[in-house]
Amino acid sequence: MLSYPQKILDSLNKINYTTNIKGETMSGRVIVITSGKGGVGKTTTNANIGTALARAGKKVVMIDTDLGLRNLDLLLGLENRIVYTIVDVVEERCKLKQALVKDKKNPNLCLLAAAQTRDKSAVTEEQLKDICETLKKDFDFILVDCPAGIEQGFQNAVAGASEAIVVTTPEMSAVRDADRIIGLLEAKEEIKSYKLLLNRVRPNLVKTNDMMSVDDVVEILSADLIGIIPEDTGIITSTNKGEPIVNDDKSLAGKAYRNVARRIIGEDVPFLNLEEDTSVMGKVKKFFSGLMGKEK
């Protein structure tokens, strides 16, 4: 089933990505993953896109800016390897390189962890900008995990980024907060583009018109879509194991996240059609409407 993407991944792996042809140092893309509302899947998205990009042969560093509420390390299963955090870097207790924790499986993937014991004011916008600038020289992608809210934590996370992924779910409050975030991003000159990632889509609820559809949300926010991720209990088990779901080749959510990574790289990948009714009821319905001729 995954023979096609795997082929691409393999070919990408052979490319020498650390320096360009002229041997100049490279300039990575800084993407902030944000949402306004908490609990919609920012950190999950960060871990999965980061892992998928690294699997595609890109050099990736993830920065957890959710000071005091760090999570990204858990999702990646790296919590026991953290020696230094981003606060140690800005307070000059260690070099930036020393604070980068390598992933267990993928040497292309690193994490700069948040400090668990400090509050949001421990790092400033300027400091984050500097860190991103430095990391750009050595990485293809710098993914910044943003805390919830629109206060200083958000401002810090966005400071060094030039692209943004706005995560939302098809719920009113999440969409409203996403709209607010989009307004703030549009006012920021440094942010050149932002894309929408719709998480926790439940096709069955959409089908029965109990939940807003992907089209509804896209229309209401009038933003470009970069991914549709289904609700998937596998995400919970994968979090428990500290293993992003993109590593599970059989998972639909994993595939959806791998597709997001491919779109980020610039491939034109069609969206998974989650809303196609594959339930028994859906099939029965189809059968009867077939009998009836063209029924709405």
Binding site: M172, V175, R176, V206, N209, D210, M211, M212, S213, D216
Partner: peptide
Amino acid sequence: KDVACNRL
């Protein structure tokens, strides 16, 4: 769904 869309 429609109620949600309109309110939003």
